[in-house]
Design a protein around this nucleic acid. Structure first.
Lengths: 224, 224
DNA sequence: GGGAGGGTTAATGCAAGGTTAACGGAGGGT
DNA sequence: ACCCTCCGTTAACCTTGCATTAACCCTCCC
């Protein structure tokens, strides 16, 4: 499991703050909520994945906090919460490096989606799939077994991805050949056999993972 | 000098497209403008720093393009351009992974600021970053190892920064070439190889830092 | 028992990539 | 205007990785 994304929320209004908390926690973020701008001056310098700053805070506005962060070279993305809708206010926030702003009343769904899209992007974990005791990172062509990392070749990864996609089903060799070679003659068929052997070797550390062959029909990736 | 950020703009309206172009070029972005959704289907899979997609395109909507990108595991940030202001439309875009949307008519200043804040931060958070036992000072093109200071050339620093940004991931040479050379032929490819050799030499003092190559796929900066 | 399908391993060949040196144009200094 | 330095590019040569091919098994089934 990937560690939760940490969000710093600075908002003095209790009701609004609670709503934010509820939504963000519900969506699997770890949220730290401060009600006081002055107190937040230390926290904003700490490592967070995102800061949600209310603009209207007593003594120390959200803008002030953002300015502080920029001066201290802290580059956490910032989204401002503001009641004001004047262009100048919004621009002011953006000039201080905010990625976005939201106005009260706000659409919770939209906010959550935006945050997710902002934060998830850097290293998209969707490319990793588990195969028994292994983790297959398709994008990086890596097969991870505990701490050990097996670097696959492009074609190995292609074929493994294909098998994984049809896990538990019989896959005709013809289909694989068609997909990755474009033809299916004697030589390409033998070549595929060699790849199957190599994949088996790579997957040998978990005997629950097996590439079984159904004679004269095809092969099947099994994970028990 | 830092390489320009590349933006893909897909917008069929000539007037609006021109306005975007003007503003974005003025603000030092490199913009590729396509007026046809179908033609964009290839381009959206190429390495850009941002895609600006009009939702209403004939034959192939911005949503379709975004869906295509997601299916192909392309993680370029997306901002939708839409005339509609209904909540459902906005949500639909966000569900497809968009970071934001803008409505016509749009505020050019706001857009430029948002884009800047989105793009500049993740890529260029701080001028100094550590790479294993090294400190990389991007702005000064310096690589520091203890007391020793290695002066990099501009292109060396460009490429190192790019690799660092994608640390631990395979980056396609194509993408680097596209970004810093603008084309990818035999010679530029060889040239890049020379730079990789030079960077390896510079990073040789910490054997935990490695630029590994995944043959016929790309290269990866690893820090163990 | 023999032939076909498949498994495995080793040999092969070629293109991608690594390395080094030489080249040459741009820019700066005198 | 000349030279010098710097640095990206080109070139030449070498190494290595990997898909393919070949060779030699085993095993199932007629």
């Amino acid at each position: 499991m990937i560690a939760k994304q940490r969000i710093l929320l600075v908002e003095d209004d209790a009701d609004l703050g609670n709503i934010f908390m509820q939504f963000l926690r519900l969506h699997q973020f770890e949220v730290i909520w401060l009600k006081d701008g002055a107190a937040a001056q230390k926290q904003v310098l700490e490592p967070f994945d995102l800061c949600l700053l209310d603009v209207n805070l007593p003594h120390c506005s959200g803008f002030d906090l953002a300015r502080l962060m920029r001066n201290k070279q802290v580059n956490t993305p910032v989204i401002f919460i503001t009641a004001r809708t004047q262009k100048e206010d919004r621009l002011q926030g953006l000039r201080l490096g905010a990625v976005d702003y939201i106005t009260k009343p706000f659409e919770a769904d939209e906010l959550v989606l935006k945050i997710n899209n902002l934060l998830v992007r850097p290293s998209n974990p969707i490319t990793k799939k588990s195969i028994g005791a292994y983790e297959f990172d398709r994008a990086n062509l890596e097969l991870l077994h505990g701490k050990q990392k097996i670097q696959l070749t492009e074609k190995e990864a292609d074929i493994l991805a294909y098998l994984l996609q049809h896990q538990g089903e019989i896959v005709k060799k013809e289909a694989i050949l068609e997909q990755f070679w474009g033809e299916a003659d004697y030589f390409t068929r033998r070549s595929l056999d060699v790849f199957i052997t190599r994949l088996r070797k790579h997957l040998a550390k978990d005997e629950k993972v097996q590439i079984v062959s159904i004679r004269s029909v095809g092969i099947r990736l099994e994970v028990n």
